[in-house]
């Protein structure tokens, strides 16, 4: 039955959708709500304040963690998204698709603590092997290559985020017709120029979404980052260690709320931008599609 014929069925569907969204988002909204309460969590009185945010931004440890998180996010995005793009291009071109897709998506199916600890053991052993190699060659140049550090955290996070970027980019690439690249080549463009002028503008929304996704994943990731990082902290590792050591403080709520604000702002901007762009394009198309009177 057409659900528009029965307005109650239609409303029920929307009501259900709203319920799902509320179930998912209520804890997030509640944390945001608490983060502005001068009296903290569980207090009867609600007095609005920016104090907890001011404290977050005046705390050198937290600001340092924020800087490290941003550096991690940017570095991982800059490396992982182009890698995922290349992988998606290869996947579209290859005939045997099963093996590459298994390799690329495998990290999604390995629990984070297992993957994190496996990489931890791998880097430790690799580090020991390189130290031994250095000793044999009489040099200490290899000693710190794979000591737990920013590099090891970046590698772990790249492995974690690539499958997501790959899928997001692949979905956008699905609509792209390879004949267009060939047409560009036939017009004199070399392979890179054909990609940059013709293919990239059409898959750009996917690449931008993959970037946003990667930034959010890096911001939120705890297990792999805490196992693989060296002597620095990220926003999430500080937040969770605070919760484990001293319990949630109003400052912790402010930090959690900030991570959520960043994520929602990023995703919201992409959705809005896509909607506005689609609407503008269709308006322009409608205007141009008027009959030509000549």
């Amino acid at each position: 039955m057409d659900d528009y014929a029965n307005p109650w069925l239609h409303r029920l569907k929307w009501g259900y959708l709203l319920l799902v969204v509320l179930t998912l988002m209520t804890p997030v909204f509640y944390v945001m709500y608490v983060s502005f309460n001068a009296n903290g969590f569980g207090a009867n009185a609600y007095d609005f304040t920016w104090e907890w945010y001011r404290l977050v931004f005046s705390d050198e440890l937290l600001l340092g963690a924020l800087r490290w998180t941003l550096m991690l996010a940017v570095t991982v995005t800059v490396i992982a998204v182009p890698m995922a793009l290349l992988a998606a291009k290869h996947y579209k071109a290859t005939r045997n698709k099963l093996f590459p897709v298994f390799l690329l998506l495998a990290p999604l199916f390995v629990p984070p603590d297992i993957l994190g600890s496996a990489l931890l053991v791998f880097f430790k052993n690799l580090n020991l092997s390189l130290i031994w190699l250095g000793d044999q060659l009489g040099t200490s140049i290899f000693d710190s290559w794979f000591r737990l550090s920013f590099l090891t955290a970046v590698i772990g996070l790249i492995i974690y985020t690539i499958p997501y970027s790959f899928i997001v980019i692949l979905i956008t690439m699905g609509r792209y017709r390879p004949e267009q690249t060939e047409a560009a080549r036939a017009c004199g463009a070399n392979g890179w120029r054909a990609f940059w002028d013709i293919e990239f503008p059409q898959i750009r929304p996917g690449v931008l979404s993959a970037c946003a996704f990667t930034v959010i994943l890096v911001f939120n990731e705890y297990t792999r980052t805490s196992l693989l990082k060296g002597g620095f902290d990220t926003f999430t590792t500080v937040l969770i260690s605070q919760m484990l050591n001293t319990g949630m403080s109003p400052q912790s709520y402010a930090m959690s709320a900030m991570v959520s604000f960043v994520a929602i702002a990023l995703i919201g901007s992409i959705i809005l931008w896509t909607l506005i762009r689609a609407e503008t394009l269709s308006r322009v198309a409608r205007a141009k599609a008027e009959p030509v009177m000549s």
Binding site: E179, Q180, E182, A183, R185, A186, C187, G188, N190, Q202
Partner: peptide, 20 residues
């Protein structure tokens, strides 16, 4: 030689215009 280095150009069956 690749297509862009040849004195040829091509018209395809369909879908080959740049939609953007």
């Amino acid at each position: 030689l690749p297509p862009d280095k040849r004195p040829t150009t091509m018209v395809f069956q369909a879908y080959a215009l740049f939609p953007h």
